[in-house]
Simulated scan of single mutants.
Amino acid sequence: MGIFYIIFTFILFFPFLTLSLFILRIFTGKSIRNPNYPPVKGTVFHQLLYFNRLYDYQTEVAKEHSTYRLLAPDRSAVYTTDMRNIEHVLKTNFGSYSKGEYNQAILADIFGQGIFIVDGEKWKQQRKLASFEFSTRVLRDVSCSVFRRNAAKLVKVIFEISVARGVFDMQ
């Protein structure tokens, strides 16, 4: 009976111990109460718990805190809707925010080594190549041809309705 009791206790205690260590690892070293960091508003477990309505959940949290963190065992993800933070990351201090090896490994199959994945010198090279396609002249030429084509479609539809003496909502 003694061996059975020990095995039974181990079987019950081991998953609890494993889960406790996992949760402890998530919350240690993440500067939870440090006011210099965005507030922690959940963990990866919240993403699983609210999986079917994750967008709604994160929108609700963003209404309360414009910048917040979700913790994982090996990293914390920062989410922001604050325009000042977005401008800081994308414009003012872009060089300080790299995509990192973790994100590059995940997205490389989709984006290869393009501008959305690479950092540093490779990014500058990709940006220089892309800047030719996004010049004012190229964008104007493309947008003008698209506008003309869609305007012609609109004129055709309105003409057909007017010939039939029909009514339509301009909105």
Rank of each mutant, 00 (worst) to 15 (best):
Q113R: 10
Y102N: 09
G112Y: 05
N103S: 15
K91V: 11
V118M: 02
I106D: 08
R84T: 12
S131F: 01
R127A: 15
D119G: 03
F94V: 00
W123G: 06
N85T: 09
N85F: 09
G100Q: 01
M83P: 08
N103F: 14
L107R: 08
S96C: 03
M83L: 10
Q113M: 11
Q125Y: 04
A105Q: 15
G120Q: 05
Y97F: 12
A108E: 15
S96M: 02
V89F: 00
Q104P: 05
G112F: 05
K122A: 15
D119N: 11
V118R: 00
Y97H: 10
Y97N: 04
W123T: 10
G100E: 00
G120D: 09
Q104M: 12
G114Y: 03
F111L: 09
A108Q: 15
N85I: 04
E101F: 11
K99F: 07
L129M: 05
N103Y: 11
Q113F: 11
Q125H: 06
S131P: 00
A108W: 12
S131W: 02
V118Y: 01
A105Y: 14
I86M: 04
G120L: 01
R84S: 13
S96A: 08
F132C: 06
A105M: 15
G100M: 00
I86T: 05
L107A: 10
Q126G: 01
K99A: 08
K99E: 13
N85P: 02
E121S: 05
Q113K: 12
I117C: 02
Q125C: 05
K124A: 11
G112D: 03
K91Y: 08
N103D: 13
N103A: 13
Y102R: 11
Q113E: 15
K91T: 12
V89L: 05
K99G: 09
K122P: 05
G120V: 04
Q104D: 07
K99R: 14
R84G: 11
L107Y: 14
S98K: 12
S98V: 14
G100N: 03
Q113S: 11
A130M: 06
G95V: 07
G112K: 06
Q104K: 07
L107W: 13
E101D: 14
E87I: 06
V118F: 05
R84V: 12
N93F: 00
I110R: 13
